[in-house]
Design a protein around this nucleic acid. Structure first.
Lengths: 356, 356
DNA sequence: TTGAAAGCGTTACCAG
DNA sequence: CTGGTAACGCTTTCAA
């Protein structure tokens, strides 16, 4: 039989509480007794207080959960997600908390079970839209939650860390407007429920059900609408996933047309880098023949000379973790808006003549 | 008061077991009753079975722990570590298991507590040497363990996934030997207990207490010893951390000497890339003036034209996770040795004349 | 400083 | 298919 606290207590000849104190409240007993208890424990192979039992009794898990819509492996593929995780882990480490990555992918039933089984004190939700099937399961856990998406319902128990997605996207688009671009394409994943790489028709960004993609497309639209470019005159390209390959594939649909756009605005750097790849293949010069913007400013963006919106994913993760682990009483501080910055590089330039 | 299983049972008018079955054994009751139970649960705000209680009762946690010597944030900085995590997460996801990252950094006491408190069914240990202070705590949990380091004691309950570190390093060094290099430097982190960036004197690789660094240095030595180059004639450079910057800094000590080596062998790509940086600053041509080898073949290595040893960290992580979650009965299969491959790129070339 | 008793919320077993 | 009963292993008063 596996030894328990009781086993040790009996072996030493003290009560359970004393052994428990030896592990959890060292100042409640003499140093010698404590040492003796540890020694006996080692001898009979007692593995220390069972975490589940302790957590049950204490009512806290000592870990925070991180939820991704996309599969767990994806979290380690997307550089932005990795940075975010890094930030969360910094907070977790500082508060002596573990970090539990909860697999939400694939099977709906498995995902819900994973959420219900997660031994955590709260969730950092990274990319799970409000209407996702897991949302109910997450909420009904009744644990504190930090989201990165603004929600309509202002639930006071929901913490938030994010950026002004729409405003930032608008700034990127305004930059292109100022450069004279009028014939443009928007490139995004999660535009339509289907995971396809193709041009798609949507009546407006309001149709997009993913918060981030939707807000960014709204921002793009805002700036061009102001310049007199109607939504209907803008090509919307859907990418099956947020990857370089899908970005390149999607861009092809716009670049191989006779009336190719003078600029392509992507909702992420990864997609934008794909666009650059597609340009290179065709011998088109970024910033001269076709301007390209991204979003996030991942490390590769700098090397590629990509004009983009900079945001700090580590800070985002860190603040998320901190908010979860140490929520402020002041309601205003429970919603954090992080700054962004337009970084202009070589991938954008004046619109070529003869098109506008 | 927070509702419990009992609360729901009372509200519906059934026994606890029935409610429990509704959640955990759906085939033990009628679909209607099950639905009714869920409905009532929702109404009174029952968050579902408490994971701690469930885990206590069932005796399994539904998560695997991952341990890093370095701080949690570091795990997300090192590209190799990220890939490894990705692999582990693939296995976790497939087995419907969570992934708990346990913070082992900084304070010894906090780290030990973290290990003891981790609600997991086993550990994947990434870079924790056998003599690390956490080792006792980890072992005494009595849980299955997958290491990436060979241990002397052949504990049958310790699973292992790794590569032939020494043989692979030897292959890299043999490549340089064949190219005529005789005056060389080895660059490694964890050579000495102190975290310093400087040339160091160690009597032999056997002195190195970190498994990976030690084995790789041993491999380097083997090949050069065979070519008649004595250990004493080889410069050993220590890097304070496995980073590009420290690699460059350490390389400076060798490159700025009159009798600079014709080749520098680094134990990781990150360090080797730093060496390339140091060469560039000095106008030295890799593969011509100074040859450089790395280890791992991280993505950046290809772009930089770095000769290196390729290993597959995703596979390594995946196999580790699988081994932990589904250990084979056959003892032989409990130790997995993954293949490696010497990838020759532009950073190595014949030794310049006049030196050898 | 120590010990006895009372749960924490579940699930497993077994008889109905 | 249902419902008692008995753990699971611990922490936490509170009194000695």
């Amino acid at each position: 039989m596996r030894p328990t606290l009781q086993t040790v207590a009996d072996a030493v000849g003290v009560s359970r509480s004393t052994v428990s104190n030896a592990y959890s409240n060292p100042d409640q007993l003499s140093a010698e007794l404590r040492e003796k208890i540890f020694e006996v424990a080692r001898k009979i192979g007692y593995p220390g207080p069972n975490p589940a039992a302790r957590s049950l009794r204490r009512g806290r898990a000592g870990a925070i959960g991180v939820l991704f819509t996309d599969s767990l492996p994806y979290a380690f593929t997307d550089p932005y997600a990795v940075q975010y995780l890094r930030g969360v882990s910094e907070a977790a480490e500082r508060y002596d908390s573990g970090l539990l990555l909860v697999p939400l992918a694939g099977d709906e039933k498995a995902g819900i079970h994973a959420v219900q089984n997660a031994a955590v004190d709260g969730f950092c939700i990274y990319c799970v839209p409000e209407w996702h099937w897991a949302t109910d399961a997450i909420r009904s856990r009744g644990l504190p939650i930090v989201t990165s998406e603004q929600h309509d319902d202002d639930r006071p128990d929901v913490l938030y860390v994010g950026i002004d997605e729409r405003g930032a996207a608008r700034a990127a688009a305004a930059h292109l407007v100022a450069l004279g671009h009028r014939q443009v394409a928007f490139l995004s994943d999660y535009v339509v429920p289907e995971r396809i790489t193709a041009p798609v028709h949507i009546a407006s960004p309001e149709e997009v059900r993913y918060y981030t993609a939707g807000e960014r497309l709204r921002g793009f639209r805002d700036a061009f609408a102001e310049a007199g470019v109607a939504w209907a005159d803008i090509t919307v390209l859907s990418a099956a996933a947020n990857s370089r390959e899908d970005g390149a594939r999607a861009a092809a649909y716009a670049l191989d047309r006779a009336d190719r756009p003078t600029a392509i605005l992507a909702v992420t750097d990864l997609l934008a880098l794909g666009v650059l790849d597609a340009l290179a293949v065709r011998g088109l010069r970024p910033g001269r023949d076709v301007s390209v913007t991204g979003f996030d400013d991942i490390p590769e963006a700098g090397a590629a000379g990509l004009t983009t919106i900079r945001q700090d994913p580590i800070e985002r993760g860190r603040r998320s973790g901190e908010l979860l682990l140490d929520p402020p009483d002041d309601p205003a501080s429970r919603r954090v808006l992080l700054p962004t910055e337009l970084v202009v590089r070589a991938s954008t330039g004046p619109a070529p003549h003869g098109w506008s």
